[in-house]
Every structure is written in structure tokens, then in C-alpha cells.
């Protein structure tokens, strides 16, 4: 039997909201340590990796690891029947479940839904646990804003790191521009900008993926960008007390 209860069901809704435009069908994996998900977008350029640790749930039980194939669109239809302040419980009964049950619980209402599961044959990538040569932490809303602004000018965005900070730049048909974000150690942790640069990087990415990734900014006030030269970048949103959502994007490289 598998059972996982979110004290804050709104959080689960935010996670689904964050990934719904990146991936369509996903395998949700549950085992004794928690719930995880890994899925690529249809163009195989971006990858979503979610980890929710067992300790972050109000209640968690998983006797045998299981894989639940879900349509994100259908999952969202069911989640629309819950309130943002509801507690949400996910549950399966059988060893090889064909449905995933949802209980939405508020002060004055309990709702039950069953979502039909699918058998999905999905390519899983072995993402190495590497050290990155530049790691930048910055406010997630600031990153969202920069991507939106520069994305107007060109479809590719450049990222350059140095000991002084991080620079975003574009070159398009209409002209070019750059935005430098300075390091700061303000008392407000959500406004801090930190750069750990062992080796500076200079990379280019398709900004439209960043604009999709930025839907996850509702999960955390800070975003962590980890980069190495000519390698995929990872954008990480820490989900407080529960785990993290990591979004990988392959770079664009000079032909």
C-alpha cells in the first residue's frame, strides 16, 4: 500500500502547475524514501526531475516501490476539484494499481477521486551527480523578469559568470543588450545574489524553455543555476522541507 499526505495540498498543485507545459505523461515513482519523477520534454532538450522526501509529508507509507504512469493534463483536471488550502492524500491499494486515489480535505468537505493510471514506456536518463564550475543563487522573480525581457529581443540567451556576478546577454536582428546581476548579501535571504565561480562559463540557451521553467518560481523565492562549460545547466527550486525540483536544459553550441 502507498499513501502520501501533503499537509499543504497547494504545494502539490504548484508543482504540477510548474511542469505541466514541459511534460505531458510522466511516471511517478514511489518508494520508502519518497516520491520522484523524471521526464523529458518532447524535443528531448529539457528534463524535469522532482524529488519529494518522505519526511516532508504529513503521513507517508510505501511498503513496495511502485511506478504510476500519469497524464499531467488529467491529473490537473482532478486537482482542479481541490481547494488551495486542502490537505491532499495520494493512495493506492493494490500491488499493481490501475488507479491513483486522491482525497482532498478541508474543514468542511472531503472529496475522493480516482485517476486512471497508464503504462508508460519512458526513456530514463542517468543524470550524473557532478560538481558544477559556476553556481549562482538569485531571486527567482528576478530571473523570470530577465528571461522575459531578453526573450523579446532574441530566442537565444547568453549566460556568463565571473567572480563579480552573472551576466545575461542577447544579440538579435534588432540589436543587442546585456543585464548584469551584482552579488549582494542583504539580510533578506530571498533577495540575496551569490556566485560561486571556480571556472567562469559562457553558455547559450533557448530562452523559451527558461520561460517555461520560470513557472516553478512559485515554489521558491530563490533559484539556483548550476553550470559547467558546454554542459546542460540545472535550474533548481528548493521545495522547503520536502525536496527540490530540478530542471535541466541542454545548451546551444556554436556550429
Amino acid at each position: 500500500m502507498f499513501e502520501a499526505k501533503f499537509e499543504d495540498g497547494g504545494l502539490f498543485k504548484k508543482i504540477v502547475e510548474a511542469i505541466k507545459e514541459l511534460v505531458k505523461n510522466v511516471n511517478l515513482e514511489a518508494n520508502g524514501t519518497g516520491i520522484s519523477l523524471q521526464a523529458m520534454d518532447t524535443s528531448h532538450v529539457a528534463l524535469v526531475a522532482l524529488q519529494l522526501n518522505e519526511k516532508g509529508f504529513k503521513k507517508y507509507r510505501c511498503e513496495k516501490s511502485l511506478t504510476m504512469g500519469l497524464s499531467i493534463e488529467n491529473l490537473q483536471k482532478i486537482l482542479k476539484c481541490s481547494g488551495n488550502d486542502d490537505q491532499i492524500t495520494l493512495r493506492t491499494q493494490d500491488e499493481e494499481p490501475t488507479t491513483l486515489s486522491f482525497t482532498f480535505e478541508s474543514k468542511n468537505r472531503i472529496s475522493e477521486f480516482q485517476l486512471n493510471l497508464m503504462s508508460l514506456d519512458q526513456e530514463q536518463l542517468g543524470v550524473p551527480d557532478t560538481e558544477y564550475s559556476s553556481v549562482v543563487r538569485m531571486p527567482s522573480n528576478e530571473f523570470t523578469k530577465i528571461c522575459r525581457e531578453l526573450g523579446n529581443i532574441n530566442e537565444a540567451i547568453g549566460i556568463e559568470t565571473s567572480k563579480e556576478g552573472i551576466k545575461f546577454y542577447v544579440k538579435g536582428d534588432i540589436g543587442e543588450g546585456q543585464v548584469s546581476v551584482k552579488i549582494n548579501d542583504t539580510e533578506k535571504p530571498e533577495e540575496r545574489v551569490e556566485c560561486e565561480v571556480d571556472e567562469p562559463v559562457n553558455l547559450s540557451f533557448a530562452v523559451r524553455y527558461f520561460n517555461l521553467f520560470n513557472k516553478a518560481s512559485a515554489l521558491s523565492s530563490q533559484v539556483i543555476l548550476s553550470m559547467s562549460q558546454d554542459q546542460p545547466l540545472v535550474i533548481e527550486y528548493i521545495i522547503e522541507e520536502m525536496g527540490s525540483l530540478k530542471l535541466y536544459l541542454a545548451p546551444k553550441i556554436n556550429d
Binding site: S204, A250, P251, K252, I253, D255
Partner: peptide, 14 residues
């Protein structure tokens, strides 16, 4: 000209 590289170039299939 910038070319988009797929993720499978970097990460092996499991």
C-alpha cells in the same frame, strides 16, 4: 549559428 544539442548527448540512457 547556434545549434541546439539534445540532452542524450550528455546523459546516458538508463
Amino acid at each position: 549559428y547556434l545549434q541546439q544539442i539534445p540532452l542524450s548527448t550528455f546523459f546516458p540512457s538508463r
